[in-house]
Design a protein around this nucleic acid. Structure first.
Lengths: 145, 145
RNA sequence: CGACACCAUUUUAU
DNA sequence: ATAAAATGGTGTCG
């Protein structure tokens, strides 16, 4: 048994130009209740927005939860599951070159440690309704002017 | 001052099916005089037709000229201005995958070197009279059945 | 080399 | 208004 509430999260990032203006969004489902969040930045990258989407979604949780996290980004998924532990062991270094987006990865690492997260990869633009929905939300959150 | 004649060229390609039967066309303006050319192929792609339109237009010039070249194809424009120099430096390789339409790009490169070309991008179907006209010419040049 | 994502333009189809 | 092909780019990792 588990006393932590079960949560589903769908998140996505978008970036017009890459690098360029970007947006992120997440849908959080807690036993029937649905919450949406989104935001944007003037100058960023697609991958930063993917991490930020996940980070903000996890931060929105009020208590330690059992999360099923859906993303189409293998960068986010592999980073959070496979690469993060290795980077930490190596003092936040990657094998070759400079580790990008350390700031966000470190904050995500902390956020992840407060929950029990099971990651699920979904192929982008392949018919998953909520994945397509957060994709739209993220695009809509790109700053215009 | 410049002794080369000033020339304006509008070109466009069209393709019925992509890949499929395609057509290309160009309008050349030399101080009031107007020349039109067009042609088609049974099996080609939209982008091959865009390059071919430019190539045939430049080849129609009788002497080294100062050309203002109008196109609605960012593929053609980026290729001719930004990508071509990099491809040449890398021995006609692109960064990832196989470089498409090398044959035409190499011929276009040679043709471009004989003139002084200033590229102008025009948004397709946005009211530019000559752009819309070459568009029609190109469609009309598509071989039927 | 591979993978996923993000994007730009054109060309089409319904 | 939908969706897909033809082409190119960067962002990131192993």
């Amino acid at each position: 048994m588990n006393n932590k509430p079960a949560v589903e999260i769908y998140s996505d990032g978008a970036c017009s130009g890459n690098p360029g203006p970007g947006g992120w969004a997440a849908v959080i489902l807690i036993n029937g209740k649905r919450t949406e969040l989104s935001g944007g930045e003037q100058q960023t990258t697609n991958n930063r927005m993917e991490i930020l989407a996940a980070l903000n979604a996890l931060r929105a949780l009020k208590q330690p939860s059992q999360v099923t996290f859906y993303t189409d980004s293998s960068y986010l998924l592999n980073g959070a599951t496979a690469w993060l532990p290795e980077w930490k062991q190596r003092n936040w270094k990657r094998k070759k070159g400079k580790l990008a987006n350390i700031d966000l990865w470190q904050e995500l690492d902390r956020a992840l440690s407060e929950h029990e997260v099971k990651w699920v990869w979904v192929r982008g633009h392949a018919g998953n309704a909520l994945n397509e929905y957060v994709d739209q939300l993220a695009r809509a959150a790109i700053p215009h002017y």
